[in-house]
Simulated assay, not measured.
Amino acid sequence: MDPQRESPRKNNTEHLIADRQKGIGVCGWILVSFSFLLVLMTFPISIWTCIKVIREYERAVVFRLGRILSKKARGPGLIFILPCTDTFVKVDLRTVTCTIPPQEILMKDAITTQVDGLVYYRIHSAVSAVANITDVHSATFLLAQTTLRNILGTQTLAQLLAGREDIVRSIQAVLDSATEQWGIKVVQVEIKDVRIPVAMQRAMAAEAEAAREAKAKVVAADGEMNASKALKRASVVLAESPAGLQLRYLQTLTTLAAENNSTIVFPLPINILVSLGQKKRGGIETVLH
């Protein structure tokens, strides 16, 4: 633990111990003795006012004539209270959920946003929570609001949207350091929602849409380039193999015939017509000779 964080709590504890070491004085002991004798004289009726039940999640800070009776809080279970000289304060040790209402914050880049959050904390020292501050829950709530505004005011909107975890850790560290002397342990901090102005939302949406369109154009251009390269390779292969070109031609005709019931004009290949023409000319020349 940081010595600077530990020093306030240490000073407060030493102050309480020093007060207890001074004692309650002669008059105090007389009052305590009188109260104890009164309990004995009215026993067992007085037992109902002297015995208090402290639940498992509670602790009791006992004051005797205005001074804290012991270094540690008492409980859980049964505790004994003198009716005239002792008073006690119950402290709940369960985790408390503190809801921070929406805070209008001017970000570092001059954008106004509304941010709300949650703070989970618990009391780990009942004596410090009672002796060092008037209302520990109200003070923690106000401190959480102020810390949220101060830290987010040093961030840009992009940093807030992209780095919530780092911001939450910073807020938790500041709160934990400030509330240590109150006996508070900050368990967790969460940013619930970030509300951006409508004009900024439209601008961000237009920017995102433009980025998506640019990416789609790049992908389409890459696809067309790949398709053209594939067609070029196919044309080279077909040019080197005329038989392959004829097979591709026949396959195309088969596909067309399978899809629709239609009449297909099937022309003869050019090479067949050329060969027939050559044979006809050869026959005529033979007759002439």
Rank of each mutant, 00 (worst) to 15 (best):
T263M: 13
I151V: 15
S46N: 01
E209P: 02
L245K: 11
Q159P: 02
E180G: 01
K185F: 11
E240V: 10
H137Y: 13
I51Q: 05
A220P: 00
R281S: 14
L268I: 12
E6H: 05
E213M: 04
Q145P: 05
R9M: 03
N226G: 08
I123S: 02
L37P: 00
E259T: 14
A205C: 02
Q145Y: 06
K22M: 12
Q246E: 13
I171S: 05
K72L: 02
T95Q: 12
E224T: 05
M1I: 10
S125I: 02
F63D: 05
K22N: 07
S262Y: 03
R67T: 15
S128W: 04
I196G: 02
I111Q: 12
L245F: 14
W29P: 00
T49I: 12
R164E: 01
L268G: 08
L247T: 09
T13L: 05
A258H: 07
L175D: 00
D19Y: 04
K232I: 10
V219F: 08
K71T: 09
P242D: 14
D92R: 01
A73D: 00
A210L: 03
S228T: 13
T87R: 06
V91G: 03
D166S: 04
M1H: 09
R149F: 08
W182S: 08
P267E: 09
A205G: 01
P76I: 01
D116Y: 06
A239Q: 13
L268N: 10
T146P: 00
N12C: 06
A257K: 11
T154D: 13
C27Q: 09
R169P: 00
A210E: 04
I270P: 00
R9C: 04
K229N: 14
L157N: 11
A220C: 07
M1Y: 09
A239E: 12
I167W: 09
L118R: 02
N132I: 01
A208E: 01
P101Q: 06
M1F: 10
L256H: 07
Q201F: 07
A211D: 09
E165W: 02
V61Y: 03
L253A: 09
N260G: 00
W48I: 10
F141W: 09
R5F: 07
V61I: 11
T179M: 06
V189S: 06
T263G: 10
A131Q: 02
Q155R: 15
T255K: 12
I51V: 14
C50Y: 06
V115G: 00
A139V: 14
V39L: 06
H124K: 11
G163T: 05
L82Q: 02
K279N: 07
Y249S: 11
H289Y: 09
V187D: 13
D193Q: 14
V186K: 03
V189I: 08
F43L: 06
A205N: 01
V287E: 05
F36K: 02
F266C: 14
T113I: 15
N261D: 15
I284H: 05
L175E: 03
Q201C: 14
V89G: 00
R233T: 15
F63Y: 15
T146F: 08
V32S: 01
R20N: 10
S70N: 12
K229E: 15
K10Q: 13
F141H: 14
V219D: 13
V189A: 05
V287S: 03
L160T: 13
L69K: 07
K215I: 00
A139T: 14
K215P: 00
L157P: 08
L37N: 04
D176C: 06
